[in-house]
Deep mutational scan, measured.
Amino acid sequence: MSIQHFRVALIPFFAAFCLPVFAHPETLVKVKDAEDQLGARVGYIELDLNSGKILESFRPEERFPMMSTFKVLLCGAVLSRVDAGQEQLGRRIHYSQNDLVEYSPVTEKHLTDGMTVRELCSAAITMSDNTAANLLLTTIGGPKELTAFLHNMGDHVTRLDRWEPELNEAIPNDERDTTMPAAMATTLRKLLTGELLTLASRQQLIDWMEADKVAGPLLRSALPAGWFIADKSGAGERGSRGIIAALGPDGKPSRIVVIYTTGSQATMDERNRQIAEIGASLIKHW
């Protein structure tokens, strides 16, 4: 067993022997301040990774656009098919120029040779490549099948209805392509620590998230040296922004954090800054 596999296998073990965790309302004060600064709703939840206990939450059962955070769930569904012998990570998928959609920095470079399922998941999570996500959605049967996968996990809230990039439209009061912070946090925890996926697939999923290259201005910008984070960000229309993450000190994750916002007129930089400040408060009061 590799060191990384050992780390993920012992996530519940280490967490069980940690000192009790206590909620700190100071972080919620910052979440509410972010709402004021952005002029928009902000949803927040913080779960203990081992027990699933909610440590703090704000608007945990209000719907927010998922945006690209759905790509972690998508690759979880792909990995479940791999575990069941219905898919192979090494299978190569070929596609054409007509398949390319807006923001496809990886797939646009491989029109000639195609990409493997493993490479597509890596591109979808680490670079948020939209064509990679659409190609992977095709392998599982489309958005409705991802929703069905989530329902089978016990998540009857999260739903995907459309493809990239239309799913980022974020129309107010439109339930399409949305989740709730509580539902997303619980589902992410199941994917990373539950028995739904094999140990190898859980490790692969967290490795992809740990290698995320496009979430630097968010929670990662607030992390002290030595902290662990595996995350996936999302951005959408109407001032929408979000991030889902597993993080913790001492090089291992111990909490799940989900943050979503929508309806702001603020710039992307300002949305990023507010999420980073929430992260800084979380870490300060850990």
Rank of each mutant, 00 (worst) to 15 (best):
82 V>E: 05
144 K>G: 15
153 M>L: 14
77 A>E: 09
40 A>W: 06
187 T>S: 12
65 P>Y: 03
233 S>G: 09
25 P>I: 09
109 K>R: 14
19 L>C: 15
147 T>C: 08
160 L>D: 02
49 L>P: 05
209 M>C: 06
58 F>T: 09
55 L>R: 09
99 D>G: 06
224 P>K: 07
240 S>P: 01
172 P>H: 10
143 P>M: 04
124 A>I: 05
163 W>Q: 09
12 P>E: 06
254 S>L: 11
269 D>I: 13
37 Q>M: 14
259 I>G: 01
215 A>R: 04
192 L>T: 07
230 A>N: 01
73 L>C: 08
264 S>K: 05
116 T>F: 04
31 V>N: 02
229 I>S: 03
157 V>K: 15
157 V>D: 15
152 N>S: 15
138 T>S: 15
112 T>S: 13
17 F>L: 09
113 D>P: 07
227 W>C: 02
58 F>L: 09
7 R>G: 11
168 N>I: 05
21 V>S: 10
50 N>M: 15
8 V>N: 15
94 H>C: 09
135 L>S: 04
130 N>D: 05
234 G>E: 01
42 V>G: 01
67 M>F: 04
58 F>C: 05
67 M>V: 10
263 G>V: 04
30 K>T: 12
53 K>S: 10
217 P>M: 14
161 D>C: 06
101 V>P: 02
61 E>S: 12
130 N>Y: 05
174 D>H: 04
123 A>T: 05
130 N>V: 01
48 D>H: 07
262 T>R: 08
73 L>D: 04
255 R>W: 01
1 M>Y: 01
46 E>F: 08
283 I>L: 11
219 L>D: 04
181 P>K: 00
211 A>W: 08
162 R>K: 07
124 A>H: 00
222 A>G: 11
201 S>Q: 06
213 K>M: 14
227 W>T: 02
165 P>V: 09
267 T>Q: 13
244 I>D: 00
42 V>R: 00
162 R>W: 02
152 N>D: 15
183 A>Q: 12
245 A>W: 01
1 M>G: 00
12 P>F: 12
38 L>W: 06
2 S>T: 14
286 W>Q: 03
284 K>P: 03
281 S>A: 15
276 A>E: 08
144 K>I: 13
47 L>G: 03
90 G>T: 13
117 V>F: 04
283 I>R: 06
192 L>K: 01
146 L>V: 11
